[in-house]
Amino acid sequence: MDAKLNGKNLLEVPVSIRNTAKTNKKTFSMEGVGRKAIPYVMIAPAMIISAVFMIYPIIYMVYLSFFKWNMIGDMKYIGLENYLSLLTDSDFIKVLLNTCQFTVGTVAGFIIFGLLLALYLNKNTKINRFLQSVVFTPYVVSLVSIAFIWMWIMDDNLGLLNYVLNFFGIDSVKWLSDPKIAMWSLVLVNIWKGTGYYALIFLSALQSIPSYLYEAAELDRAGRITTFFKITLPMLSPTMFFLVLTGTIASFKVFETINIMTLGGPGNATNTLVYYIYEYGFKYYKIGYASAVGVVLMVIVGLLTLIYFGVLQKKVHYQ
C-alpha cells in the first residue's frame, strides 16, 4: 500500500522527465520501469525480513496445524483433528483459563499500581525525579535475572519472603509450590517488573493534562475526589485504554517467568498458552498440535489488536 503511494509520488515529481516519457510512449522505456521499481527496492530489505521471519512462519504454522508430525517422521494430514482434540482437552482449557487469570491479574495490577504510583510521583520534586528512575529500573532488568531472584525470594525454605513471615510468627507460604498460590506469585513478579513502565506512561499522561482544567474545576467548586473522577480519569482514558490492551496482549504471551520459575507446575497450575505450545512442540514433539494452539493464540491476540485499532479510530480526539 505504502509502496504504491511512494511510487506514485516519485512519478509525479519530475515533470520534465514525465513529458519525455509520454512522447516515447510506444517505445519501451527502461527509465520508466526503473523509476517504478525504486520504491520496491527500497522497502525490499524490510519486506524480506518480515517475510522470512514473520509471514512465512505464520503461514507454515497454520499449515502444520492440519498435520500430525513429530519433526522427524512423515507428515500426516489429519484435517481439523488437532483443533477438535484441543476443544476436548481439559489440559488446554485449564491452560487457557490460567492464561486469562494471569492476564487479568497482571493487567489490573499494572493499571492500579501504575496509576497510584504516577499520582504519587506527579509532584515534581527532586525526590520524585529520583524515584521515577527507581521504579523504572525493574523494567530495564532482564526478565530472566528477575525470575531467578524472585525464585530465591519465594523459596519455600530459604526464601526471604518466608523468612520475614516467620520472623513475625506467620507460617510459611508455599509461594511457588502451592497450586492455589503459584499463579498469583507469578502475577506478583510480573507486576513488580512492569509497574514502573506503566507508572511512567501514566505520569506523562497526567502531566499533559493542562493545568487550567484544574483551575477551572477549582473555580467550579469541585472537590478532590470529584476532580479525580470527572477530570483526571476521563482525560487519562485514552492512555488507559492503550495500556490495558498492550498489557493484555503482552500478558497473553508470557513465557520466561514460567519457564524459569515453575515450568508450568505444580501440576498444570501455572501453565499458560505459550509455555504449553513450547511443551508440545519442543518437549513432546507434537508439532501439529502445538501449531493449532499457536493459531488459537494468534487469533486471540489478533482480535485484541483489531479491537484496539477499531476503538482508536473512533476515539474522540480532544481539541
Binding site: 493542562p210 487550567y212 482544567l213 483551575e215 477551572a216 474545576a217 470527572k230 477530570i231 476521563p234 482525560m235 482514558s237 474522540v316 480532544y318 481539541q319
Partner: peptide, 9 residues
C-alpha cells in the same frame, strides 16, 4: 480563561 478551559470530556 483565554484558552476557554472547557472540560474536553
Amino acid at each position: 480563561f483565554q484558552n476557554y478551559a472547557l472540560y474536553p470530556t
